[in-house]
Design a binder for these strands. Structure first.
Length: 222
DNA sequence: CCAGACGTTGTT
DNA sequence: GTCTGG
DNA sequence: CCAGACGTTGTT
DNA sequence: GTCTGG
């Protein structure tokens, strides 16, 4: 699963890495992003690639209220193409969710050790995400969820599952403004090459989402 | 047909 | 135990 | 994901 | 909105 991550690189690095023009409103590096918070994302609206924020935790357009969002922070990529809640989003509401690392808590006998996982090349990357727009009267809400898959060999040492990370050369493909068959997107994900990952232990200061500070991403000594 | 769920992870 | 907040 | 709250009525 | 269960 993926329930916490970081996006601590500079604005300039993001603009360059994802080929975006202009600037990012309210930009700030984040060290401890939790469900329910805004996350930096890129979509293609048919004309241009747009960078902006979505709230993490999917609230489908049909939801009667927004409470469901707290639960749908991930979507299983193995079955998303046949689930009523995700099928249509997979066809036409795909987004990049920007990150430079994510956290997993490895279970020990009686405790949990938080770990920071990042690309071996240490670059900023993109999770494969789905988004939706929810509306009721004059309220509207744009939300997203992170697709997951079975852990690869490396991640398996830490956790059963892992987020879907898009290799750089597949990012534009993922957000192409063309409607795709859900099963096509399922195969697309299944055939992705999983990036080389690395990990280190971090302080349990990261446990509390109130601590959005640099110490969260620093290697734990001893 | 209508009613009711629609999700994930981890744990039991 | 379950829900909310971060 | 984890942490922390979770309730009412009446009185101050 | 769309799918499943009855």
């Amino acid at each position: 699963m993926c329930g916490r991550f970081a996006m601590s690189v500079s604005e300039l690095e993001i603009l360059q890495e994802f080929g975006i023009e202009g600037e990012i409103p309210d930009f700030q590096p984040r060290f401890n992003i939790a469900p329910g918070q805004k996350v930096l994302t890129i979509i293609h609206d048919g004309n241009t690639k747009r960078i902006g924020y979505l709230k993490w935790g999917l609230v489908p357009s049909w939801a009667k209220d927004t409470k469901i969002g707290y639960k749908i922070i991930n979507a299983r990529s193995e079955s998303a193409h046949e689930k009523p809640s995700f099928k249509k989003l997979l066809a036409s509401k795909r987004c990049l969710i920007l990150a430079d690392s994510f956290y997993e808590w490895k279970k020990q006998e009686s405790s949990k050790q938080p770990k920071r996982i990042y690309l071996k090349n240490r670059k900023v990357f993109a999770f494969a995400g789905l988004w939706d727009k929810w509306q009721l009267d004059d309220q509207q809400l744009f939300t997203c969820t992170i697709l997951t898959r079975k852990a690869n060999n490396f991640m398996g040492k830490i956790h059963e599952r892992m987020p879907v990370i898009l290799p750089k050369e597949k990012q534009d493909d993922w957000i192409t403004p063309i409607k795709r068959e859900p099963s096509y997107m399922h195969d697309f994900i299944e055939n992705l090459q999983i990036e080389e990952l690395d990990a280190y232990n971090v302080s349990d200061i990261v446990n509390s989402a109130k601590n959005d500070c640099k110490e969260c991403i620093e290697p734990l000594l001893n």
